[in-house]
Design a binder for these strands. Structure first.
Lengths: 107, 107
DNA sequence: TTTACCCATAACTCATTGGTTATGGGTTTG
DNA sequence: CAAACCCATAACCAATGAGTTATGGGTAAA
């Protein structure tokens, strides 16, 4: 019964972890060390966050020598957007005044 | 420092709570009692979930006699969708930068 | 080879939180 | 008025999880 959204929401609900993901989105591939410099927590903490992000499919890792490079995988956000769209769909079927949200989602 | 997304992700990360929200999206306004029937947890648990959903702006309540009606407010999902779009935007921007750079290197 | 470095895992602590039962305020019903 | 009902809050408990320090495996550097 554990849905796809479960892992995504849980994984992104922690601010530190989400910040790591955001940084990977903004600045592209980063090593664990580089991420640790700006994370505000210890290196093991960063490693654990990265492991969870990887388990959720939000990042991929690449080993090069003694360092590991991580990069964001945006396609994993699909189910999240789909979920929001589905919820909006149910809602829109009943009422009609959220043009605002739908516009932002449809673009 | 606590962003808008913080509350949204945290609030939606619990499966029971998200199921309550989804039900309100699907079936419209519901009383606490009706929600409790399908929530699989006790009535106080449902009340606490609803309080958190309300705090996140995801639901609104309406008092009528001795029962309280809750309904979903989808506009609260806006920041979540915006965030996903922003992340995808960063990703595309980097990609464009790369293409731009490669193009300049070619000539 | 020895040393230094990068990262992941283990072991543990502490705070958070989702669950429970108990209870009370407010509202209908008998 | 009395009783039943709906919901929210209080108080408590157990599990989860995010953080730490310690450590080890693997790779580059001296």
């Amino acid at each position: 019964m554990t849905s796809l959204q479960d892992n995504l929401f849980k994984t992104l609900s922690d601010p530190t972890r989400r910040a790591i993901f955001e940084r990977l989105c903004r600045e592209g591939e980063q090593t664990v060390g580089a991420l640790t410099l700006h994370a505000g927590v210890s290196q093991p903490a960063v490693s654990k966050h990265l492991a969870l992000l990887r388990q959720a499919g939000l990042v991929r890792d690449r080993h090069e020598g003694r360092q590991t490079h991580y990069r964001a995988d945006l396609t994993a956000l699909g189910p999240l957007v789909d979920w929001a769209r589905e919820m909006a769909g149910f809602w829109e079927a009943r009422f009609d005044d959220l043009e605002d949200l739908l516009k932002r989602m449809d673009q």
